[in-house]
């Protein structure tokens, strides 16, 4: 999955100033006054066959961005141009009814928690066959065959022994394989993977990561890979975007960002990752305090409160734009 996206000039997904605000004091009679700016003017492109990573701490808006791309959440503003090369490019944000349902054949999501992402009362067959059923694809016999084939593909063999078991009879790793099978069963071309390995044990994790890589290469799938773990992003994504409080603060080739982070937040994030080597000493993390609130933030740089290099200019200016600093590297910082 590390191959560079070369040929197609048009990206599979082009998110343009994507914004999602959640009303904070919601009520039927009350008028909404405050908004949580979960995702705030985020733009990025995902090429065909590419795996693009969204990295950030909890609450930075990465999961909401993922859900926006599969329309589990409706955007407040912005466009998501989806261009699969077959049909006309469409704005996912404006789809509804029948066209939304047919878009759902092409984009799927894998969820973080393998224990919660499957209905405990439905068998593995029911779970994996659900997309086929709601999209009215195939009859009962084809569905059983298709599901068995998928289970075999994700390494649950022999498939027949898994079809009529319940999620609770499977281990976490096996369940996450079922989740992958469910996402792939209708042959999508784009998958949002929301921390698919973060709840798994290390010895199981690599297997799932490999599986997702292999399948993407084999079936030509693009990923939006959401993770809080920079090390995982390094192995799964050719390019990453680092998010902080609803904004992308840095974006570029994964290896380059990891070796030469330019935004002070990315630098802090990297230096906070523990190193599995008892004799190595990490430099101290420079930033202080916790993540500030996303509710009605001031217009200045979102990172200002915690930034070690911020000055009066940062305080009095708007949030810095995401600027190209050469070599495809985009950084949103006045000081970088």
């Amino acid at each position: 999955m590390t191959q560079a996206p070369d040929a197609p000039s048009r990206p599979l997904i082009h998110a343009i100033s994507l914004t999602k605000r959640f009303p904070v004091s919601s009520g039927w009679f009350r008028r909404d006054r405050s908004f949580a700016h979960a995702v705030d003017g985020v733009s990025f492109q995902i090429q065909r066959g590419e795996s693009f990573g969204l990295v950030g701490e909890s609450g930075c808006g990465k999961t909401t961005t993922g859900k926006l791309l599969v329309r589990l959440v409706d955007p407040t503003e912005g466009k998501i141009v989806f261009d699969d090369g077959e049909d006309e490019p469409t704005d996912i944000a404006s789809l509804s009814g029948r066209s939304l349902k047919s878009f759902r054949r092409k984009a799927q999501m894998i969820f973080q928690d393998p224990y919660e992402s499957m209905n405990p009362r439905r068998t593995i067959f029911d779970t994996v066959a659900e997309p086929l059923k709601v999209q009215k694809i195939g009859g009962a016999i084809e569905r059983v065959e298709r599901v068995s084939e998928m289970l075999g593909m994700v390494g649950l063999t022999p498939p027949a022994t898994f079809l009529f078991r319940y999620p609770h009879e499977l281990s976490g790793g096996q369940r996450q394989r079922v989740a992958v099978a469910r996402a792939l069963v209708i042959e999508p071309i784009f998958i949002v993977a929301d921390e698919p390995t973060s709840m798994l044990d290390v010895s199981i994790r690599t297997g799932i990561m490999r599986l997702m890589e292999d399948l993407a290469a084999r079936l030509g799938i693009s990923y939006l890979y959401i993770t809080h773990d920079l090390a995982v992003a390094r192995y799964m994504c050719s390019r990453i975007a680092v998010m902080y409080l609803g904004k992308i603060v840095e974006q570029g080739e994964t290896e380059e960002i990891l070796h030469n982070p330019k935004h002070p937040y990315t630098q802090a994030l990297l230096s906070a990752v523990p190193i599995p080597d008892p004799s190595a000493a990490r430099p101290p993390v420079k930033i202080e305090g916790g993540v500030s609130t996303p509710i009605d933030p001031p217009p200045r740089c979102r990172f200002y409160d915690r930034c070690p290099v911020a000055d009066a200019f940062c305080r009095d200016s708007e949030h810095p734009p995401l600027e190209d600093k050469g070599g495809g590297r985009m950084v949103a910082c006045y000081k970088a």
Partner: peptide, 26 residues
């Protein structure tokens, strides 16, 4: 709020499907 409800929506399941296949049985 369970992810399996979101998964069903992502698969293209409508309101009736989600309510009767996922919510009511639970």
């Amino acid at each position: 709020v369970k992810p399996y409800v979101e998964a069903a929506k992502t698969a293209g399941g409508g309101h009736v499907h989600v309510i009767f296949v996922h919510v009511v049985p639970n």
